[in-house]
Design a protein around this nucleic acid. Sequence first.
DNA 1: GTCTATACGAAGATAGAC
DNA 2: GTCTATCTTCGTATAGAC
Lengths: 198, 198
Amino acid sequence: MGARKSDTRERMLESAVALLREHGARATSIDRVLAHSGAPRGSFYHHFPGGRAQLVEEAVARVGGFVAGLLDEAAASGDALRGVDAFFALWRERLVESGFRAGCSVVAVAVETNDEAPQLARSAAAAFARWTDALADLFAGQGLPAARARRLAAFTVAAVEGAVIMCRAERSAAPLDAAAAEIHDLLSNTLRPPRSTI
Amino acid sequence: MGARKSDTRERMLESAVALLREHGARATSIDRVLAHSGAPRGSFYHHFPGGRAQLVEEAVARVGGFVAGLLDEAAASGDALRGVDAFFALWRERLVESGFRAGCSVVAVAVETNDEAPQLARSAAAAFARWTDALADLFAGQGLPAARARRLAAFTVAAVEGAVIMCRAERSAAPLDAAAAEIHDLLSNTLRPPRSTI
DNA sequence: GTCTATACGAAGATAGAC
DNA sequence: GTCTATCTTCGTATAGAC
């Protein structure tokens, strides 16, 4: 009935996420987002009165939420190894399908954010924190003490993000696969088997 | 004697490295490099006829060489754990002394390089490769099979770089310390003791 | 090696019409 | 919600004098 909820805003956000991944934060200009999304020029500041900073901040929050959702799904299964493997698989797919041109939007913002609005750094930190928390819960659920679980979770996020960067630079999945194998082995030796298999 | 070798070029390069670390690749503009280094405007294209891309490429190569030098020093001692600890310590110092504003110049270029000259990606990949090679040598020197040594080396580089990014976002050294602790434990359990202690 | 001047484009943001 | 100017600033690059 009546006015369908506008998807212009939605498309701009999705374009911002994609451009952040491939070209970085500073290169994700309003012009480019408009061109990529096909959204009309004149409505940008209508949807994002806070300007470019607001768009980027919301794009980062969206990625943070999306990936956290994946991890929470894995948490429901109670199998930490599966959750971690899914985390690696997600980034691997992104790399391969983009010809090793696309990385992580959150990283892009974290690396380029010193000149921009301070809430951007906070937004990136919040995304990393969500992923770390989700992984820590996963690990703690399999018998690891809380402190170690957190340490291992932060370590896992760092390894994935660092490996994705290396993969882009050398246009190969080898660094991510190396990290996945090492983390997998480490977790196998550290965690006790999931409850369902005892 | 006579004409002292000009240090203008040198200062521009050092400024580029510093700006890449703190503000990213795109934000490392010629204007900013000149302002930071105090170098005269008119001589930029004299020293870097290839323009901004040449400057950035050389800056990345310089960082790559510098860090590789540190790792090679550690390799001379034959103690892999010491080498890895020095690697972590280097980045920790950079983070702390900058108030968690400075990261890795090579990462900045790797993340933002899709729009710029293709040799920039290659330059970043070369830096990562040098570090990975140096660490792999270190690990292989302590009894690890070559393939595993390489895998572990790439993993270590990825963990450090990813952790540095997280540290910047959350303005804390916790992620790097977590990664250092996990890598340290992993290596202790994986490598045999250095030759000197047998 | 260094200086000034300048051309040119891209980017963020705002104003006012529709 | 969308459109068309328009302002301003910044960035790369070149030309030509000194």
